[in-house]
Structures are given as structure tokens and as C-alpha cells.
């Protein structure tokens, strides 16, 4: 190592990363781990492509199940990607460093959930029209499917983070995470599919979308708090 004479300035306060830095670095990580983004999407597409093979190719039948199936698969894809949300940070000690920051853990967790949504929910929503075509979804449902997935998957990312934080210290959390988080996903699923169904049937669906937005607002406010507590609990061992 270099033999420079080093005299650091000791200061009371430490340099602290801000929210923008968190977001930027998390985005960078998401981009570097492209497989983590691609896998849920491929899962989403391939299971939905299998669906007609199991159900039969009748267009009416597929159109009937399309909203529910697309939504359930989006939910599963989000869930599958949730496991890796905090795992590597837990293993390399970064999660512990996060809890030691003077500012609330809330924002760091919020940044993580936001990036998780950008990496999974957003592409899922963008892909959904393509799958809607394959499953013969009536034309009236497209816009609603897209918007509901856009908002709904954000809630799913936020809620799922609680489960990811609770199970981060468990060795094989996959199914456990699903078990914990699934019941919490129910309202989002109901209103998401409800909105699409209403759109297809020609009814107004703004009420369902408004409820989805309300769920998202509540999840954004409360879920990171719970996640932050869960992270501290999981690390305390």
C-alpha cells in the first residue's frame, strides 16, 4: 500500500447517502443482475403460453379466464422475484450497514421496493397487452389491464418486501415467503381482476382503479415501516 502519511479529519457526523444515491445504486444493481429481471418475465410469459395447452384453444374460454389468469401470473412472478430482494444484501452485510444509518430505514426500503417494481412490475405491465392478445382478451380490457397492473404490482412489491424481510435470515425461504405473503395479496388481486372484468363487461371501472390507488397509497405509507421493523428483527440474531 502507499505510504502516504494520512491524517483524517475526525468529524462528529458521518457522510450519509441520500435517497437519490440509494435509487441510483439500486437501479445500477438491478441492471447488472439482468437475469433477476428477465426470469420473472419469462416465467410470466411461459406459464401464460402453457395455459391454452391445458385449457384448450377456444377463444371464448380463454377470453373468460384471461383477466384472472394474467393477474394471478403477474402476482406469482412478483412473488418469485421477491425472494432475492434483500438476500444478497443480507449475506454481504450491506443490510446491516443500512440499519446503522442515522436516517430512518424507511427510505432505503422504499427505494428498494421502488426499484423492485421498476424491474418487475413495470415490465410485466408493459408486456401484458401482448399476452392479452394471445389470450384473446376483449379490446375494452387492454387499457384497464395495463393501468391496474401498473398500480397493483407496485402494491405487491411493497407488501412482498415485508415477507422478504421477515424471511431473509431463513435458509430456504421460497415457499415460506409465498405462504406468508399470499393472503396479504388478496385485496389487490380482487380489485385488479375486478377492474378488468368491469371494463370488459362495459361498466365503469374507475371505482376499482381508485381503490387500487388507495391500496397503493396505504401500502407505500405503511409497508416500508413494517419492512424496516422486520429487517431489524431478522438481523437481531
Amino acid at each position: 500500500m502507499s505510504s502516504v502519511d494520512i491524517h483524517p479529519l475526525v468529524s462528529g457526523a458521518r457522510a450519509v447517502p441520500d435517497f437519490a444515491t440509494f435509487l441510483r445504486i439500486e437501479m445500477l444493481l438491478a441492471l447488472r443482475r439482468r437475469a433477476d429481471i428477465a426470469n420473472p418475465l419469462l416465467f410470466f410469459v411461459s406459464v401464460l403460453a402453457l395455459l391454452p395447452l391445458g385449457l384448450g384453444p377456444e377463444p371464448e374460454l380463454l377470453a373468460n379466464v384471461a383477466p384472472g389468469m394474467i393477474w394471478v401470473m403477474a402476482l406469482l412472478a412478483t412473488l418469485l422475484s421477491q425472494e432475492s430482494l434483500l438476500r444478497s444484501d443480507f449475506e454481504n452485510g450491506t443490510l446491516e450497514q443500512l440499519t446503522l444509518l442515522p436516517q430512518p430505514l424507511y427510505f432505503a426500503v422504499l427505494a428498494k421496493s421502488l426499484v423492485h417494481w421498476i424491474a418487475t412490475g413495470l415490465p410485466l405491465a408493459l408486456l401484458s397487452p401482448l399476452l392479452a392478445v394471445m389470450l384473446n382478451l376483449p379490446g375494452e380490457g387492454y387499457l384497464c389491464l395495463f393501468v391496474s397492473l401498473l398500480m397493483g404490482t407496485a402494491s405487491l412489491s411493497l407488501i412482498g418486501a415485508i415477507g422478504a424481510a421477515l424471511t431473509v435470515a431463513v435458509r430456504r425461504p421460497g415457499l415460506l415467503l409465498a405462504l406468508i405473503v399470499m393472503p396479504l395479496y388478496v385485496p389487490v388481486l380482487i380489485f385488479g381482476t375486478g377492474a378488468v372484468q368491469a371494463a370488459i363487461d362495459g361498466y365503469a371501472y374507475s371505482a376499482q382503479l381508485a381503490i387500487l390507488a388507495a391500496l397503493l397509497a396505504a401500502a407505500a405509507a405503511l409497508a416500508p415501516l413494517a419492512t424496516a421493523v422486520a429487517v431489524r428483527i431478522s438481523l437481531d440474531n
Binding site: 454481504n92 452485510g93 450497514q97
Partner: peptide
């Protein structure tokens, strides 16, 4: 506010460069 802790796990993310790791620490 005035703590610097380095544990068994160094808190270094292997998908980042050393420079990015330090920038993450502020």
C-alpha cells in the same frame, strides 16, 4: 451519527465496483 462499523461481512456488494460501493456509503 458518528459510527463506522465494519463487521465480518464487509458490506461490499459484488455487483458494484469499489468506487460505487464507497459512493453508496455517502
Amino acid at each position: 451519527e458518528s459510527l463506522l462499523y465494519i463487521g465480518h461481512q464487509g458490506g461490499v456488494r459484488d455487483s458494484l465496483t469499489p468506487l460505487e460501493n464507497l459512493i453508496w456509503y455517502g
